[in-house]
Design a protein around this nucleic acid. Structure first.
Lengths: 231, 231
DNA sequence: TCAAAAGTGTTTCACTTACACCCATGG
DNA sequence: CCATGGGTGTAAGTGAAACACTTTTGA
């Protein structure tokens, strides 16, 4: 197919840690909408769409996400990769810029009828190259969980360490020791104790201390694993 | 200004570690060309240009770089950020996708008359928003020097540890201990001894052992600084 | 008083850095 | 034989992981 012009679209991989069914442990979820028209009718797609000529990409994706979720819920938004294969979608040649968006636990935004949260570990049939984008976003998120404070965008304002441990588990895919998590994050200045305590759960147990993220903006907290500057 | 359509361009920040003047220590350099026409006539710009409708972004930037440097010299190429402010350049609205390109030391590719290497530490007046792109690329490169094998794309096939130390110094901006550099990189499997030795320099001194990078493809070598998987 | 959940303390381990000292070469 | 640069050994420090043990609560 020969293209004569190029369109530009933005797509967002919006993640939230959510409870599914009666399961005790929450899982990582991604926001998808189901296509009602061909091509790929019935397949699930990432929210987003055409970029207008008078808006930059972050504005564009925020505008388009506003139709899906309350944008105030979006605690973090960052650029991912660009997908530019000339025939990645049928029709006019379209370059896609992808974004990673994060919604805090445990908000439950209103969703349009065609839109749903899906387990990242159990994705439905997806439209076009969107599954690659989800995988890419997940990889990026998991990496950043260990050397940035990006968790602030997935956690509530205040939380116990068990809650935070669940969030790390959901994003990383492997269990994390709550004790060590606390020590690592407090030492780095990522976590601050609020001084208050939560109430005990339904089945008793000692109430947990409440923490909050020190910053509510993205920050790299562990830049140099090796080859640090001298001093 | 009201735009009615959107163009898409690619721009590359091409780095090389180079000797400048009689200085003993090489420095990080970026490839720039000087604009001969308005706007920003005389200012220095990144290589790149309009994306054709039938090529993806990596192909496009490779094609356009071929006019500046021998593409065989380009040992690494990766996507950076997209710049999308509607008025970032005069004329039609243009979205720019930027790339990071790396050329090994100490190649000296032929350059067109309008093109030169410039010290990253002493940049000339630059066109449009290109200085931001260079800063962004430098930050990304410095970060990746410490947790990936990306140095393979800046180093010769074989090299002594002093050479490698200079390359790390040039990219990171602070001195690195050659001894520890060797230990860190060999343990991670990034560096392999060749078993051969270099000849002594002009002023005598013990000849250095020669090393090579184990892989000639980009690889993350130190994924988890903390919160590693159990086991 | 028991189970559940949270928190503390301690040991072990892996890695990195810093630095003093020894080695090989050319002039 | 000495200046120059390369290489080795080692000690100290950091920070993370694992895990047993203690504390606090609800029922």
């Amino acid at each position: 197919m020969i293209h004569t012009s190029t369109e530009h679209e933005v797509l967002a991989v919006v993640f939230q840690v959510r409870h599914f069914g009666a399961s005790q442990v929450p899982e990582l979820a991604v926001l998808l909408w189901q296509r009602g028209l061909e091509p790929h009718r019935g397949a699930w797609a990432l929210p987003g769409g055409r970029v207008r000529t008078d808006e930059d990409l972050p504005s564009s994706i925020r505008r388009q996400l506003a139709e899906k979720v309350d944008v105030r819920e979006l605690a973090h938004l960052e650029q991912l990769a660009v997908f530019s294969e000339p025939n990645r979608v049928p029709g006019p040649r379209t370059i896609a810029s992808t974004f990673l968006g994060l919604v805090p636990f445990p908000a439950t935004p209103e969703l349009p009828a065609d839109t749903q949260w899906h387990r990242v570990s159990n994705l439905p049939a997806m439209a076009f190259d969107h599954h690659v984008m989800v995988a890419h976003a997940h990889t990026r998120l998991a990496a950043k969980m260990s050397y940035t404070n990006i968790g602030f965008a997935l956690a509530p304002q205040q939380f116990t360490l068990s809650t935070l441990r669940d969030i790390y588990y959901a994003t990383l895919g492997y269990p994390v020791d709550a004790t060590n998590l606390q020590r690592v994050l407090v030492r780095r200045g990522v976590l601050t104790p609020t001084g208050t305590t939560a109430r005990s759960g339904r089945s008793g147990g000692r109430p947990g201390a409440l923490y909050r993220f020190t910053d509510d903006r993205y920050r790299v907290t562990d830049e140099f694993a090796a080859l640090r500057p001298p001093g």
